[in-house]
Nucleic acid binder design. Sequence first.
DNA 1: TTAGCAACTTGATGTAGATCAAGAAGGGGC
DNA 2: GCCCCTTCTTGATCTACATCAAGTTGCTAA
Lengths: 252, 252
Amino acid sequence: MVDVAEFPGNGPIRLTCKDCSLAELCLPRGVSPDDMGRFETMVDQRPPLSRDEPLYRTGDRFTALYAVKSGSLKTLVSTQDGENQITGFYLPGELFGFDGFDDNHSCSAVALERSNVCELPLDSIEELSSNIPSLRRELDRLMARQINSDQSMLLLLSRRSADERLATFLVSLSMRFQQRGFSANEFRLSMSRHDIANYLGLAAETVSRLFKRLKESKIASVNGRTIIVHDFDALRDGIDGCAGSLPERNLA
Amino acid sequence: MVDVAEFPGNGPIRLTCKDCSLAELCLPRGVSPDDMGRFETMVDQRPPLSRDEPLYRTGDRFTALYAVKSGSLKTLVSTQDGENQITGFYLPGELFGFDGFDDNHSCSAVALERSNVCELPLDSIEELSSNIPSLRRELDRLMARQINSDQSMLLLLSRRSADERLATFLVSLSMRFQQRGFSANEFRLSMSRHDIANYLGLAAETVSRLFKRLKESKIASVNGRTIIVHDFDALRDGIDGCAGSLPERNLA
DNA sequence: TTAGCAACTTGATGTAGATCAAGAAGGGGC
DNA sequence: GCCCCTTCTTGATCTACATCAAGTTGCTAA
């Protein structure tokens, strides 16, 4: 069983970082080794974040994008009255922080567990992407994917039942793990039931009951935060025609 | 009473179009008259769209961004089983189409009424924004605002009651009208009850009942698609602390 | 090992808003 | 004007999920 805590660094991803065990993480294919080298020197590793520690908060000045090296994070929007809505989870190898491009961050980003992230400073991004049009284009794509992902979530939250939401979430997570060389069937959830519920617009109790039903119907084994999907097709079937609009969030 | 059908073209906005009555629509402040002139020649007006006519569909190749000259449009994501979720409404002077930046459009855009739009071809955008860094930065901001707006909607849909959703929607619409020189208190809804309900994740009947309650409590007069807000504060109060996270969608 | 707490589970009950079903009111076209 | 068709309203009923209330499990720490 693979744990998401440490990212192996041999997946098919795209950007190098001088201090990272990550092989590549965000640079588009077709970039010269020379440009690649210049990019490396611009990526900084941040001090490790402990559980519940924020990387940035709503309103913070936007200075950089971030890539998850190990661990995982969530982003959330808040209201005056202290309510939160989790807007995304980020796994090793994924890039996030686009919410800040309008000068200030509109979300907070918080570590779900002990995590390492790399920083891509805005200055470097701008300088380099003005020299490498394909990088510029790639960043546009990543932002567009963020938009698409958020809009798929809108559909999920307003038109889908609780079980469809959870099934969609699990399938999406599974695909993201698989894409990075982890097992698609067996993985560890780094977020609490409460976080899953919040993300999916449900109550934590409901999520718990849905996991119970997945166990009873032999679709998946759920033991604490460890999940093994036995019947992927049944899970997908539960989603009922919206497979194409999964929040696949191919970020990076 | 102001109708949104025709945009007066004297608002504080930013981009010129050679055939448009719009004065300016998207170019950032501080751009030289020279660059402005070059930009003008790149904007094309499209043939008018009639009601329910699509401007682009999910999966269409991304070739341009669009600005609303007159009328209004909606964007929507769809599922295999034919269900739709409206992801946004666009009023005169607003820019949209960012969902396509990942090569293909992930939404469809459909006219709500007879509408005119201007087209900003991708090629022109790329060429010009590589020469004018501030334009590049402005486009990033617009995309970020789209992300922020979508994420505010996530919060609205999953954590807010039906009346809070409608109040938020009306306040947001009102602000957008005001920003473009229209009355903030009195405006015409170009979308059906069904569209409003779909956008807010509700049933059309519920929207109808909520409008009735707004009338009964003297907060607003609602007569068909014409709305007059009498007590703006009461409307805002109904939103309960989430005023800061309104989908203000300052697009353009 | 055991205490203390947070995370999770499970059951009982309540309710906001969906759905179903009929009418009423607009609003183009002729 | 009048017809037809869509949109909107209003009421009655139903239900998925939230909320409330106890447990239970499982870390973490000494």
